[in-house]
Write a protein that binds this DNA or RNA. Structure first.
Lengths: 143, 143
DNA sequence: CTTCCTGCAAAAGTTTTGCATTAAC
DNA sequence: GTTAATGCAAAACTTTTGCAGGAAG
């Protein structure tokens, strides 16, 4: 399953004339296993990675459509694999420690949401609307 | 209606031993009229305001529960009045120009959302969950 | 007259970039 | 052998802070 992710990444990068190097593979592997991570978390997660290369490689992967920037309340940017490589999901964010977990909502609610929001957005003159739904609360550890 | 906002702000600030100065009033007025604004937008919006004072005053207002930081994809932080002073709402974000508009969803959907998400979050060990729902698309001007 | 606010300039902290070296194809 | 990726150090950029002067109560 994560093998598919690597294959897709490889293809996407080649399409842009870029190489799927060991470091990039490590990044993708990390994000596939541990979800949305900030740069400090990435650096802690894998010893050898260098900060500037991590930023650069995440930018490359973002441009290739493999990774996306997640906006959170914290001071650092977070990155995750795009939904094409995983699945549509949402975030459970701890407002105390900043930790982020993935969560999916029941598909009937997801469907209702999609239809309703699309209608709303059109009415406001917006097109091609996607939604971002995050839950902010206090996680078990911080309670 | 915006008079109520000013009164509430005044009270909140006094409770913290702070003053509702002209500059703070201007900030609140701006946010009340134009929704979520970034610092550059604020500085452009009103000539005389100084950057460091704006940051400082927004921090004060945030601490007083009058203003909250909105996280967006852009490079600057955005600020808006808290929902206690306005009403529960969501954001319509243009992924091209970064503009942010307020939008409300039908209250039945809002209710369903609230109940379902609360259940989900509890199951994951999270408490006191609030949700943040944003719509990202292309606005009329950028289409 | 005491306390808080403002503005300037400098600092802090995150992210980006230039350049020489190393690795991939 | 050619083109791209890496690491280091320095730069850029947003946000925060120290300090002296000014305003508010």
């Amino acid at each position: 399953m994560t093998e598919t992710v690597h294959e897709t990444t490889d293809i996407r990068l080649r399409e842009e004339g870029q190489r799927y190097t060991g470091q990039r593979r490590e990044l993708v592997e990390l994000l596939a296993n541990e979800g949305p991570l900030s740069i400090p978390e990435v650096l802690r997660g894998r010893g050898g990675l260098k900060q500037s290369s991590v930023y650069r490689n995440l930018a490359v992967l973002e441009h290739a459509g493999v990774v996306r920037r997640v906006v959170t309340e914290g001071e650092f940017a977070r990155f995750e694999l795009t939904e094409e490589l995983t699945q549509h999901h949402h975030h459970l964010i701890c407002s105390t420690c900043g930790r982020v977990e993935d969560v999916t909502v029941p598909s009937d609610l997801e469907g209702t949401l999609d239809r309703t929001l699309d209608r709303l957005a059109r009415r406001a003159g917006f097109a091609d609307v996607d939604h971002r739904l995050d839950l902010i609360g206090t996680c078990g550890d911080c309670a």
